[in-house]
Simulated scan of single mutants.
Amino acid sequence: MKKIILFFLFSFNFLFAQINTPEFYERQINILRDLDIKSDFISSLVFVQSQQDLKSKHAQTLIDGMQNFSKITPMIRKILAEQEVPEEILYLAMVESGLKVNSISNAKAVGIWQFMQPTAKTLGLRIDAYVDERRDPVKSTYAAIDYLKKLKTEFGKWYLAILAYNCGNGKLRQAIKQAGSDDLNTLLDSDKKYLSLETRNFLRKILTLAFLANDKDFLLSKNASLVNYALSNDFIKVDTPSSVSLKDIAKNLNISLATFKKYNPHFKHNFTPPGKGYYMYIPLDKVAFFDKYFEAKKLAKVDTTIPMTKIYIVKAGDSLYKIARNHHITVDSIRELNRIHKNHLSINQKIIIPIKEKKNANIKTAQSDSKNYSNLVRN
């Protein structure tokens, strides 16, 4: 039996060597080394067998991340280097969310790093009626690195920190105790199932994307420009005036509102939050214009009262148009409040409906109602 296993391992190693150049093989070994994984993992039977399947399923995630989020990937790589953590952590974010800042999981994890609200708040991210900093790619990246560093300190190895990021440190501790080892091949054993299939595949997916990103032949076969996708980021953080319209800010920067929102997905409404000391991001090519012409004092203050809302449960036959008409509101207001980009609704889906204020009705201010509102918004 032992001879058969050795034969298969030799066969896979031989096949692997035929496919990959020495240069690419060395890059792969370096990736494993960066994550504290032994080099012999590259010839692990289970990993080799899963590679082709993972490539076919997740290669497009890498291509989309490079092409559609060219402003985010360089920023993340820069922060990872600055914080002296493995650059392969970028692919953790790709696996988690495809780098979509507005990504929301079924469990209500949000942003490119897929933080649950309690975890995000413990890491210093602001989540309230006005902003959700899980959608801020810069601030959430620093939070994710901080979290991963703590996990690395707890478990001693980067691959263990990555596994814990997915399953939680409690479950990983339990798995290591059951296995009697923190060896990667042991923890990923598909027969023993010390970890769930999702967690076992989580690290494999990250490695697959990291390998593909370092495979010049693969990138060239998809799009030659992808080889140089990691360019410098093109935005900068500046102070934002409080309680002003995003539309007015965009107009004063001479950019479209859609462009401004793309750089600032953490704002929940079409205005900046009240109070001093908050921030926004602007394109790098607008910095000189901002310094010379932007005058916050000239921007009109707007009402930052958060509208009263209710939860509506979608029924059979409902559409955005029908729900909006029945509640005497616009489709756009429903889309904006719920961050809905498509027309499709699911039966029993919960959506937030703004309630039109009646004349002489008591107005709830944002300050008094922010806690209740935050519970309604999908966090």
Rank of each mutant, 00 (worst) to 15 (best):
I4H: 11
L6T: 09
F7H: 08
F7R: 06
F7P: 01
L9I: 13
F16E: 08
E23G: 03
R27I: 04
L32S: 03
I42R: 11
Q49I: 14
S50M: 12
Q51A: 13
Q51W: 14
S56C: 10
A59H: 14
T61S: 14
L62Y: 10
G65H: 13
N68Q: 15
I72W: 12
M75D: 13
I79D: 08
P86W: 06
E87H: 15
E87Q: 15
E88V: 13
E88P: 09
E88C: 09
A93I: 10
M94S: 13
V95E: 06
V95D: 06
S97V: 09
G98E: 14
N102A: 15
K108D: 15
I112M: 15
M116S: 08
Q117V: 15
T119Y: 05
A120P: 05
K121Q: 15
G124L: 11
L125A: 10
V131C: 11
E133D: 14
R135K: 15
D136T: 09
D136L: 09
P137I: 08
P137T: 08
P137W: 09
P137N: 10
S140M: 08
A144C: 03
I145F: 02
L148K: 00
K149Y: 02
F155K: 00
W158N: 03
W158M: 03
Y159M: 00
A161N: 01
I162Q: 01
I162A: 02
I162K: 00
Y165G: 00
N166Y: 03
C167E: 04
N169K: 12
G170L: 09
L172K: 00
R173G: 06
D182K: 01
D182F: 04
D182R: 02
N185V: 08
D191E: 15
K192I: 05
S196M: 02
E198A: 13
L203T: 03
R204K: 15
L212N: 05
F218I: 02
F218A: 03
S221Q: 06
S225K: 14
V227D: 05
Y229I: 11
S232F: 10
S232Q: 12
S232E: 14
F235R: 05
I236T: 14
K237E: 10
P241G: 04
S243P: 00
V244F: 01
K251A: 10
N252H: 09
N252S: 07
L253M: 02
A258C: 00
F267R: 04
N270G: 08
F271R: 04
P273W: 01
Y278M: 07
Y279L: 00
P283F: 03
P283N: 02
F289R: 00
F289N: 06
F290T: 00
D291W: 00
E295L: 09
A296N: 06
A296W: 03
L299V: 01
L299A: 02
D303T: 09
I306K: 02
I311G: 09
Y312L: 11
I313H: 12
G317F: 04
T330M: 05
D332I: 04
D332Q: 12
S333I: 08
I334Q: 03
E336Y: 07
R339S: 12
I340P: 05
H341K: 14
H344K: 14
L345D: 07
I352H: 00
P354M: 01
Q367C: 01
D369Q: 11
N375A: 13
N375V: 09
L376H: 14
V377Y: 15
R378Y: 13
